[in-house]
Amino acid sequence: MTDAANDIAGLSFEEALKQLETIVRELEQGNVPLERSIDMYERGDALRKHCDTLLKSAEAKVEKIQLGQNGEASGTEALDPQ
């Protein structure tokens, strides 16, 4: 993995989303040089994929919540996000 991919893999959902929002805002302003825009777009795409993976993992965990006899959540089953 590249340093950028390692950097992104270690981010929480909130951190990755904040970086992605910053990239989108800068690109929308339209005053970024072309080469930098391409780099930013590539990082933004990697951040989007990371956020999507984290969201899918969280959704799967929510679906695995087991309800106890009294109707309350009794626990979750951990899932491998891969």
Rank of each mutant, 00 (worst) to 15 (best):
M1G: 15
M1F: 13
M1V: 10
M1C: 08
T2Q: 05
T2L: 10
T2D: 14
T2P: 11
T2C: 07
D3M: 09
D3T: 06
A4P: 00
N6H: 11
N6W: 08
N6G: 07
D7S: 08
L11V: 01
L11E: 10
L11W: 09
L11C: 03
L11A: 01
F13S: 08
F13V: 04
E14Q: 10
E14W: 06
E15Y: 00
L17G: 00
K18S: 12
K18P: 02
K18G: 03
Q19T: 00
Q19N: 06
L20V: 00
E21S: 04
E21A: 06
I23K: 03
I23L: 09
I23G: 06
R25S: 08
R25K: 14
E28M: 09
E28L: 11
G30L: 04
P33T: 01
L34Q: 11
E35H: 05
E35I: 09
R36V: 11
R36Y: 02
S37I: 00
I38V: 15
D39P: 00
D39H: 04
M40L: 15
M40N: 00
M40V: 01
M40W: 02
E42S: 05
E42T: 07
R43L: 15
G44P: 07
G44C: 05
G44H: 07
D45Y: 09
A46E: 10
A46I: 02
L47Q: 01
R48Y: 12
K49Q: 08
K49D: 15
H50I: 03
C51K: 00
C51T: 10
L54W: 03
L55E: 10
K56A: 11
S57D: 12
S57Y: 09
A58F: 11
A58R: 12
A58L: 12
K61C: 01
V62I: 15
E63M: 02
I65K: 03
I65M: 13
I65E: 11
I65V: 15
Q66M: 05
Q66V: 14
L67D: 05
G68I: 07
G68T: 07
Q69F: 09
N70L: 14
N70M: 13
G71F: 14
E72F: 15
A73R: 07
A73K: 07
A73W: 07
S74L: 12
S74N: 13
G75Y: 14
G75V: 14
T76L: 15
E77M: 13
A78N: 13
L79R: 09
D80E: 15
